[in-house]
Amino acid sequence: MKTRILGFAALLAVAAATVNGLFIVPADLNQGDAQRIMYPHVASAWLAYLSFGVTAMAGIGYLVRRDLRLDAIALAGAEVGVMFTAFAIWGGMMWGRPVWGVFWQWEDPRLTTTALLLALYAGYLLFRRLTDDPHRRAARAAVVGLIAAIDIPIVHFSVIWWRGLHQGPTIGDPSKILNPSAPPLFVLALMGMLAAFTLVWGYLMIRRYQLARTEWQIEEHGRLGRISAARRSFITESITEEAAP
């Protein structure tokens, strides 16, 4: 019930932040209405990083404590994170088209980093589906999540250098909007959107966690069922053998 209230609060907050971002905050002088994509775009990118941090931490926690609930948190983080990453990339492409003239800008370090991030954690989720034993899956996934999290900063720096070791920031770089010279109204709108998205994030995390626990129970139930079925058929077989002349 409490989770449902959180869900409604998140829905209302996103609606309010959307109305604010679309109609109340003035459009950017240079980029016009396209700049409004920044609010959900940046907010979802931040939450994606948060999710993957949660996945790595929960994974380490699992390796130390061997508690499957921590693994459920790790799974929730990865899945919600992949969703937010995909959303951030989609928003970035929609924003890039009118501002840069192309959907994909290879020179933008954030876009390329985020694409690799999506690949890293989509791989993590696929990997999880191919291991059946819950504890084995949890331990292996924890290692994958940990190495992926360690890789993120290396990817980030390498891509920044790759753009050109001697090149200054490009005009129209998304980070420019967030520097202190940005109008406080814009920053406030972004913060509002971030708060609303964080509520959504919390709601999705809790729901995914609950779902993971239920899935685990079903798996466990199925396993026990198979064991007792095997035992039953073994007993029946031995009885028929005895009955045979």
Binding site: A119, G123, Y124, L126, L130, V144, A148, D151, S158, V159
Partner: peptide, 26 residues
């Protein structure tokens, strides 16, 4: 990690290629 898995031929590149992307680049 993948040696005793199902579909390991696919999983190893799938997991490793994004990780080694900075190595490839450098």
């Amino acid at each position: 990690l993948t040696v005793r898995m199902r579909a390991r031929e696919v999983m190893l590149p799938l997991l490793m290629l994004p990780i080694v992307a900075p190595l490839l680049l450098a």
